[in-house]
């Protein structure tokens, strides 16, 4: 089984710890994972902003870079959804890549067939299901089942979990007031749970929520799901 990591541009440039955690987690589970270095970005920011033509070279790049792998795994529901749901509409040559692009929890649960990944994380955690993973990929209970199996972790239910955090890519800067109002409500719900950690499976959403939390001096910490799943007794993440 040839498996490639699609790190995503946000993780590569701003959250390398998430991509590193994904590699370590997969290797711990016995998966040899490759990182083809010609990869960059799926093109979602351009696509969702209305610059479809600017996406085309990136689709070509993704297809050429990732063509030879059985699975491409990415720690981002949103980027996985871009490739799986939107690529075939942009360029027919992506139809073979599209179904092989899996979000991390899909790969763990559906391909590897594991829910207990042997992680240890002694913290109270609440989970925000980001919209594209929730609605476009249909991740369902996978992330929460994985979290529940983590030793030491207490999962607290997030009220109004299905509601968008307000990030929305360029929406966050084109409609900053509504975006921030949505984010503030999400943070308030997360704080209500009393959890130490707000977990998500998309760092772009966590960047938005984390920015709000840091500004308001919230005690909550945003942590990507991959980092929680990668942590063990020997190596506890943040």
């Amino acid at each position: 089984m040839r498996v490639a990591l699609f790190a995503t541009c946000v993780n590569d440039a701003l959250y390398p710890s998430t991509a590193i955690a994904t590699v370590r987690l997969l290797e711990r589970l016995g998966v040899k994972v490759d990182f083809p270095q010609a990869q960059t970005c799926c093109g979602q920011p351009q696509y969702n902003s209305g610059y479809r033509k600017q996406v085309e070279p990136l689709v070509t790049r993704m297809v050429n870079t990732l063509a030879e792998y059985d699975y491409v795994v990415t720690p981002s529901g949103s980027c996985a959804a871009m490739v799986r749901n939107h690529y075939p509409r942009i360029d027919v040559k992506s139809t073979e890549l599209a179904p092989r692009m899996l979000e991390l929890t899909e790969f763990l649960v559906d391909v590897l067939g594991v829910e207990d990944v042997g992680a240890y994380y002694p913290h109270t955690v609440t989970y925000h299901p980001s919209c594209h993973g929730l609605r476009m990929l249909g991740l369902g209970e996978r992330p929460r089942r994985l979290l529940k199996a983590v030793r030491g972790l207490t999962l607290l239910e997030l009220p109004a979990a299905d509601e968008c955090c307000g990030f929305g890519g360029t929406f966050a800067v084109k409609n900053p007031d509504v975006s921030a109002a949505m984010g503030a409500d999400k943070v308030a719900h997360a704080e209500e749970t009393g959890a130490e950690v707000l977990c998500g499976a998309d760092n772009s959403c966590l960047m938005h929520l984390g920015g709000l939390m840091r500004r308001s001096g919230s005690a909550l910490r945003p942590v990507h799901l991959a980092e929680i799943l990668a942590s063990t007794e020997q190596e506890v993440a943040r």
């Binding site: 919209c131 299905d162 968008c164 929406f171």
Partner: peptide
Amino acid sequence: LPFASSLCGA
């Protein structure tokens, strides 16, 4: 108006 959405899909 087309930008008045976070594209959350609800």
